[in-house]
């Protein structure tokens, strides 16, 4: 009988230990391409405390730009033209403090001939570059488990992160030239919750039986 109790208790303890292993759950929110200089919100589910004991919270962001850059050189001599199309994509906490910044950027040069006589962002002295794209990732950042942060991230519902996209473009190429930039920005924001699960009812019952048997033996 003693042996049986010991076996049941041992089995129950091992199952509980296994059931309390670390687990993680990930959520992400994708904000599709929109003109830069926009302010939007990435909504992510909070951590449901019924899942277990929260051990860490981490966030990440991938920022992207998509756009078109054009130029027409009016220079009388061939010149090298440099174009930069990018954005500053800022992820904020719900209280609007900056959490992270992504800086996707496309930078390139083109050789322009002397002005070809036609202002069309094309030909020998012009260029139109469409579907330019770039991405920049902010690696996983651990969020301190302060009471304030726990209030944001734990519970039912979602936590909203403001995402601000500011376009930034520039160009140079001699002294007689015109540029045109059109820029869209997108962002993917993700959260990872690591926690220890609460054991399942059947498992808890097994442990309970083992404990009860052990107590009965001592009387």
């Amino acid at each position: 009988m003693m042996l049986i109790r010991r076996v049941v208790f041992t089995i129950g303890f091992c199952v509980c230990a296994a059931a309390a292993e670390a687990a993680q759950i990930n959520y992400s929110s994708f904000l599709d391409y929109a003109p830069t200089n926009s302010s939007r919100v990435a909504s992510l589910p909070k951590f449901d405390p019924a899942l277990g004991d929260l051990e860490s919270i981490s966030l990440y962001m991938n920022g992207s730009v998509l756009g078109t850059a054009r130029y027409e050189s009016f220079n009388a001599t061939p010149r090298t033209v440099t174009l930069n199309l990018g954005a500053e994509i800022e992820l904020q906490q719900p209280d609007m403090d900056t959490l992270a910044v992504s800086l996707p950027l496309i930078s390139f040069s083109d050789n322009a001939s002397a002005y070809d006589g036609v202002f069309d962002y094309d030909g020998a002295s012009g260029g139109t570059f469409a579907n330019l794209s770039a991405s920049a990732s902010v690696p996983l950042m651990e969020i301190p488990l302060t009471p304030e942060n726990l209030a944001y991230f734990v519970g039912m519902g979602t936590v909203d992160f403001p995402v601000i996209a500011r376009g930034a473009s520039s160009g140079s190429g001699g002294g007689n030239i015109i540029f045109r930039f059109e820029t869209l920005a997108a962002a993917e924001v993700g959260v990872q919750y690591k926690f220890r699960e609460i054991p399942e009812p059947a498992t808890a019952a097994l442990v309970g039986i083992a404990v009860a048997l052990a107590r009965r033996r001592r009387r």
Partner: peptide
């Protein structure tokens, strides 16, 4: 004389230069 005028600004704009020296 070689010009090197340049501009920087937002993501959606048009700009240019005419430069003499």
């Amino acid at each position: 004389a070689f010009a090197s005028s340049f501009g920087s600004g937002p993501g959606n704009w048009v700009f240019g230069f005419i430069t003499s020296a």
